[in-house]
Computed example of a mutant assay.
Amino acid sequence: MIQFIESLLRLMDKATEAGSRHAARQYGRRSVLAKTGAALIGGALLPMLPFDRTGGSAFAAEGEDETTCDYWRYCALDGNLCNTSGGTTTACPPGSSASKVSWVGTCRNPNDNKDYLVSYNDCCGKASVSGSTFCFTSERERPGYRMGLYNDINWCMANTDKGYHCTVAVLVGVADE
């Protein structure tokens, strides 16, 4: 039995030596070190990559139309929808820029029954487009003396180009209970 184990160990030793010599002929030390280093650094950077932590709950569910005023994210929007004016729900159309000041609303997402803070930014610098959807939803609006909660202001006043074009609705986060 001992002889069998010794011969098996010799066989494994020869196979390991042959594999190591083959790898040494095929790959240099520098390439092995470079690949090992890249794998270690890549593995360390992987947790820093962005990913969607909302589980899809913060976006439109199937069947919801983001181009109509009754989309949940527009609960405090007063203006033209950017996604019907050449932009998207969260991005201004080309040729316009987001206002430097904005108002914030708290809207309930019916898909997960959570309240979200939504920042409404006017897009400035272009004339309004005919045919874009105009919404006036003032859920929980505050009087004009509460500037950050009031949507009846030209929020382009802080920009160089003061012409109003449309409004985007950017999710800021989940509102505290």
Rank of each mutant, 00 (worst) to 15 (best):
F4A: 15
C75Y: 01
E141S: 05
V129R: 05
C69Q: 01
K114G: 04
L117S: 09
A23T: 07
D112M: 02
P50V: 07
A158V: 09
M157Q: 15
D122I: 05
S102R: 09
C82E: 00
L149V: 08
L9I: 15
N80I: 05
V101K: 08
F51H: 13
K162E: 05
G105R: 04
S99Y: 04
H165M: 08
A24E: 13
P94V: 13
C92N: 02
R21I: 06
R146D: 13
H165T: 05
E17F: 07
L33P: 04
D161I: 01
T36L: 14
P93Y: 05
D13C: 12
A44Q: 10
V101L: 11
N113Y: 11
C92I: 04
N121E: 11
P110G: 02
N111H: 09
P93C: 06
A76F: 03
G163W: 07
G28N: 10
S128D: 10
W72A: 00
N121F: 10
S102Q: 11
L45K: 04
A58C: 11
Q26Y: 10
R53C: 11
A44S: 08
A98R: 04
R53I: 12
L49C: 12
Y74K: 00
T137W: 03
A169S: 07
V104R: 10
V129I: 08
E139R: 09
A44E: 05
F134G: 00
N113R: 13
G173A: 08
G95T: 04
Y164H: 05
E62H: 09
H165G: 02
F4V: 12
